[in-house]
């Protein structure tokens, strides 16, 4: 599968489940994974899952104006930059930037690094 398809499938899976059921994102992380969410960092699958499931408290999520760009690095790595806007619980949509590095481990892609930031305050 080429990188373009990997990125398209990854983004589809990630953002659909981020909105619908964040507990399903757990399988994308391993113990080496790192997440920095609005300036706070989490390392490892269980810490990240805890943040995603219990640490983020909102109901409905809507993404808009989504754009994905990527570059390959080393043997299997992919750097992904996502820009878009997210609204939750019917609030205004806020523009954000999110970067991922993806890499292959045991035959499947996992998230190694992830940084999320709203462009606003």
């Amino acid at each position: 599968m080429d990188n373009k398809k990997v990125v398209a499938q990854f983004c589809e899976y990630y953002y659909t489940n981020f909105a619908r059921d964040r507990s399903r994102l757990e399988s994308l992380y391993v113990d080496q994974s790192m997440l920095t969410f609005q300036g706070t960092s989490f390392k490892g699958r269980s810490a990240i899952k805890e943040k995603m499931v219990e640490g983020i408290r909102f109901g409905t999520v809507k993404h808009e104006n989504m754009n994905f760009e990527f570059q390959p690095f080393l043997e299997s790595g992919i750097l992904v930059l996502v820009t878009g806007a997210m609204s939750t619980d019917g609030d205004r949509a806020l523009p954000f930037s999110e970067a991922f590095t993806l890499a292959k481990k045991d035959g499947r892609y996992i998230i190694v690094n992830q940084i999320f930031r709203f462009n606003s305050l």
């Binding site: 909102f58 609204s87 939750t88 619980d89 609030d91 205004r92 806020l94 709203f118 305050l121």
Partner: peptide, 15 residues
């Protein structure tokens, strides 16, 4: 007043 970004953690200093 924020647009709800406090739900995701602290606000940035500029606020």
């Amino acid at each position: 007043d924020t647009a709800g970004q406090e739900k995701y953690g602290g606000l940035r200093d500029g606020y």
